[in-house]
Amino acid sequence: MDPLDLVGAEPGPARTILFDGRPVPALPGQTLAAALWADGVLAWRTTRTGGRPRGAFCGIGQCFDCLATVNGRPNQRLCLLPAEHGDAVTTQEGHGHGDLAV
């Protein structure tokens, strides 16, 4: 049994997103976080101070642990963003705005 079997899901063909450059399949209607979980990926950022890995925690947009850089824009909550074909997710380091430092 898996979740798709349980609800008799018949999704359309998977899309492809890129996680740190690696293709990962995403079912239509899944969030980026769901697609990564389905691929066994649980972490997609490192913390600002300790450099520790983090991924989705609350699953509903409240904890902001699931932040990552998506298509160049940092601090996106992957548990909320629908996966679109070609989306590029990159592991975010810290605040994700390193390019702005002066």
Partner: peptide, 9 residues
């Protein structure tokens, strides 16, 4: 704002 690197010195 959100945490940022030093952008205002």
């Amino acid at each position: 704002t959100e945490p940022l690197p030093r952008i205002v010195r």
